[in-house]
Design a protein around this nucleic acid. Structure first.
Lengths: 196, 196, 196, 196
DNA sequence: TATGAATGAGGATTCATTCAT
DNA sequence: GATGAATGAATCCTCATTCAT
């Protein structure tokens, strides 16, 4: 039994070792050999722990996402206004310290385009649910505080979609600065009932 | 001069021949040989017209997008209400007849993750601008008709982001039916001024 | 019949057009397409006149060698001493104006390593005979003038070999300046009967 | 550290396995696949040890040259007269047992025409120096023995050039028998002080 | 006669995967 | 359990050659 624990630990450890190189290179341009070297293990060892590159990234992103959730939670508590809290969910990923996360999340989307295995889908559903719950909770609170109109609760799904859209387009048509500005405008317009 | 015209024509012709197979398979799983066979030309010929697979898809998607724009325009005119027109922009892609387009647009996003060449970025900017103009126009009309509140015009960017988000998530966490339903809800909530 | 004449003329003309590019690139790195382009003709046309790249170079080198022979003859007459005349045969090729010739003669040796066809062998025998005759003639004259010892006439073959050796090594272990100096020393030592 | 030793050993081993096939075929007509098959290894393995075909031949020729030097040294000691020793340096390569060496040395010259990398140049300089030293030593001995005139020491460079020339022309204009005869005549004439 | 678009055989090269140590 | 040398399938890409115009 402790073996399993260790195995799981080592999986995470190996995956985390590859974080940096994945920030610099696309997964599809990385060979098993390079990843193994980055993790300071043999190629054969990598196969002991992962079926393929994609599985490794899934383990990695799971770790990063856990970290990220903690950060979100910590920082949300420091914000007072609901609107600020929601904006934080949108924008935290664009802070410099999360550049690497953004790149790897992007990489993950690319992976999910070709490998549609269960674990990946599960991760995505989980991500969606997390965000759905968090946003629902915050918006309901806003409604209770009479800040948001009651119909806002219906917007949760579309807000998540919007968040994804901002993420995608931040790699192409927009700079990060512009993205953050646009997100700010979006949140303000969406929840600003007074000036409507 | 006619040579240039013909070369360009042939490029489009070859690209279009590959439409079907791209619907069935991921580009990364397709070899140059398969694509050439699909287009009924030799491998060497493919290289005469395209630098690589990705360039071919760019030519293809440009064609499909042109078709799609025409369809959008035609169908928009048939709708009477502004809201219906906007919803059409969101949902037309999810109609059965555009299954193939959806798949190839998705493929294109995957390509743009690894190849960041100018032509691809230009296409994306162009796509964004088209949608920005179209939506701006419609929303402004809605404002003029007093259907939408004036602040709606600020939403154009975020609406495009939302559209992208719906597209992305429609491949993972949602079915198409659900996506269409969610889009309907989104549009209604966004533009329903009465119950606000 | 005039057609044949023209055909032969055009062969030479095409071959000469490729002189420059052969100075810059190795034949094995040149494609038929590049050579045709250099000669301002179509690829197919090149095939009308030559079986392959190597045949083209043979036609080219035959031309260059004809020119070179004329130059040798002209310049030999301007020298007074026999020794100077012989040294000229060795060194003329290393003058700047013949850089291109040297490169193409080298290329020709490379070709003759892989293609042992009759035409190439004939050219080489011809080259050997030309040099044998010329040198024999000069050395005999030297013997007649009592400048060289009678045994010198036996050296003709080895002198040609030495000439080839200087040519070969001038591309590798020596600079051209050094080669010219070494040739000068060689001729002097070989024919200097006094200080022996 | 033993790994490096083994790797080096294996390189030599693979290279030597290809000796025979290089005797039969030109390198440019040999594919990586054929060479790998000849060495009883996989294509990929060949790439583990060599960058390309040419590098392999360099390793091979280095081996062969080492052997050849030993042979020269052994046989030189068995000859009594200086002239015989020098003739041996010229002619040993034309003995039947070295047919394969000749072919591969020729191949090497062909390679050195296209690939001018450092290792090749180093080998050539090394070959030149070896011969220069050996010949200088022998000729000096001849001078000391009053067999050769003092000026002979100046001939070393040209003698090496002549040797190269004989080698080159032995593939084209001459048979091996004729070459050996001509070399014999050359040595005799060059060093025959009496009949001068 | 001249052409160059079309071709596909051929060869180089990569790299995931295996397996003996 | 860890390794990395060995492998060869897979794929890319080139380019000599053909042939319809």
């Amino acid at each position: 039994m402790p073996l399993v624990v260790n195995k799981e630990k080592k999986r995470k450890c190996i995956a985390l070792s590859c974080q940096e190189i994945l920030y610099k290179k696309n997964l599809k341009d990385l060979t098993i050999a390079e990843l193994a070297q980055e993790a300071n293990i043999g190629k054969g060892t990598l196969y002991e722990y992962f079926q393929n590159k994609e599985e490794m990234v899934l383990v990695l992103i799971t770790q990063l996402y856990e970290n990220f959730k903690l950060k979100i939670c910590t920082q949300i508590e420091q914000k007072k206004e609901i609107k600020e809290k929601i904006e934080l969910i949108f924008t935290l990923l664009y802070e410099d310290e999360f550049n690497c996360y953004r790149k790897i999340f992007k990489e993950f989307i690319a992976i999910s385009y070709s490998c549609n295995n269960e674990a990946i889908i599960k991760f995505q559903k989980n991500w969606y649910d997390d965000n759905f719950n968090l946003l629902s909770h915050l918006i309901q609170e806003g409604i209770n505080q009479k800040i948001f109109p009651p119909k806002s609760i219906k917007m949760v799904d579309s807000i998540i979609n919007t968040m994804v859209g901002f993420f995608i387009l931040s790699f192409y048509t927009k700079t990060i600065t512009q993205t953050k500005k646009d997100i700010h405008a979006y949140i303000n317009t969406l929840f600003d009932s007074k000036k409507q």
